[in-house]
Amino acid sequence: MALLPVGLVLSRQYGAKYSAQLETAGFTPVTDQNGRLRDVPPGGQLPGHGNPFIGGA
């Protein structure tokens, strides 16, 4: 139980590090309908949005 706060701090540092790398690569952080943070590639959109039967982007 004493290691729980340490794990939370390390988890946040890990997430911040890789979030910064994704932003540097051009990904955009977006919140989906469920409230989760997703990283969308440049020129992309969240899964489930738009018409999947249209060819190309």
Rank of each mutant, 00 (worst) to 15 (best):
M1G: 07
L4N: 03
L4M: 12
L4Y: 10
P5Q: 10
P5I: 04
V6S: 08
G7M: 05
G7Y: 04
L8W: 03
L8P: 03
V9P: 02
V9R: 00
L10H: 06
S11H: 01
S11E: 06
S11K: 04
S11R: 06
S11Y: 03
R12D: 01
R12T: 05
Q13V: 08
Q13D: 10
Q13W: 09
Q13A: 11
Y14M: 06
Y14L: 02
G15A: 15
G15S: 14
G15F: 00
K17S: 00
K17G: 00
K17Y: 04
K17A: 01
Y18K: 02
Y18T: 08
S19H: 03
S19I: 02
S19W: 03
A20K: 11
Q21K: 15
L22P: 00
E23D: 00
E23F: 02
E23V: 01
E23M: 11
E23R: 13
T28P: 07
T28N: 10
P29Q: 11
P29I: 13
P29M: 14
V30E: 06
D32Y: 10
Q33T: 13
Q33W: 09
N34P: 01
N34Y: 15
N34C: 04
N34S: 14
G35E: 05
L37K: 07
R38D: 12
R38Q: 15
R38M: 15
R38N: 15
P41N: 08
P42A: 14
P42M: 07
G43S: 12
G43L: 12
G43T: 13
G44W: 07
G44D: 00
Q45H: 15
Q45Y: 10
L46P: 04
L46V: 08
L46Y: 10
P47C: 11
G48Y: 09
H49V: 10
H49Q: 15
H49G: 04
G50E: 12
G50A: 06
N51H: 08
P52M: 07
F53M: 04
F53E: 09
F53P: 09
I54P: 01
G55W: 07
G55M: 10
G56L: 01
G56V: 06
A57P: 04
A57L: 01
